[in-house]
Nucleic acid binder design. Sequence first.
DNA 1: ATACAAGATGTAACTATGTAACACTGATGG
DNA 2: CCATCAGTGTTACATAGTTACATCTTGTAT
Lengths: 154, 154
Amino acid sequence: MAGVEGHIRIRQGDGRIVGTHSHPELTKNQSLVFGTLNRADGPLTAYAILDLLRDEGFRAPLQVYRALEKLLDFGLVHRLESLNAFVACSHPGCSQHHAVAFAICETCGNVLEFTPDAALKDLSKWAGDCGFSPAKTTIELRGTCRGCGQAATN
Amino acid sequence: MAGVEGHIRIRQGDGRIVGTHSHPELTKNQSLVFGTLNRADGPLTAYAILDLLRDEGFRAPLQVYRALEKLLDFGLVHRLESLNAFVACSHPGCSQHHAVAFAICETCGNVLEFTPDAALKDLSKWAGDCGFSPAKTTIELRGTCRGCGQAATN
DNA sequence: ATACAAGATGTAACTATGTAACACTGATGG
DNA sequence: CCATCAGTGTTACATAGTTACATCTTGTAT
Ligand SMILES: [Zn+2]
Ligand SMILES: [Zn+2]
Ligand SMILES: [Zn+2]
Ligand SMILES: [Zn+2]
């Protein structure tokens, strides 16, 4: 087993398909994990993925973590540090964007992925000024999304 | 026990004292945890704090987590999401700044706390535009600090 | 074909991080 | 005196992630 074709639908939170990833080098377990994350409409913890893949033969957390490690390398998946959870990248050509930000609604659980160019530029400037070389940047906003905010005031 | 005076030195990574916090409402356990974080020259996990406070009578993680929860509320301590660890706030008048960023050196473990105003403004603008109300913003740069970067190229 | 190397997988055991539940204490205000 | 509340102590539990080792698969060199 070395190279199951991974051609997987990318959905928005509403289920609308907005793109696909085609990565020729996904192995069986990587495809299973990536497929699970794409079908989910929100972030999943590694153990949640494990439970969803019991029927496919998954038995141990390491099977999930190994697949996730590769998917993170490929840029197909992001880790949400403040949730200890993982989401499929929602940007179809994501291999490019190494710095990205997330807005996480604490009411409905939806996650919006965006690229805050100005913020990243400012952070880069700060880093340059004080001699810090960033390897990975984490930006996560926890709060309430438009829908949930409106619902609360109705 | 209700109100041990907490007047505690704030040190930089080099041990230099750069300020103090005076908070009249710190309880015994809160003072012990806060003091431990201030003496440390880097972030500590909750279990590391627990081990450092065994001699003071700490026995269970909840004693640490309960103190940390309050210290986080008071703004005296920050949580580093990407490390599952905690640091004393290095900004003496920190009660004000609710949004802050960290540059974490993966070589030496030092953490620099800073306030990236322009980045925060940009993120606020993005949030406003898409109806998201942020309650807490996490910004963490993982990389290499000036000293460690220079050491690597020497 | 045979042999080897690299990558992928399976499994058990373990460490690390964080919580729930319940009991107890000491202060505060009727 | 009694109710209440915040803080504390302790046990057990739940969640998250890793180490170690064996096996299997596939590509490649001989
Ligand atoms: Zn992405
Ligand atoms: Zn929402
Ligand atoms: Zn601070
Ligand atoms: Zn360093």
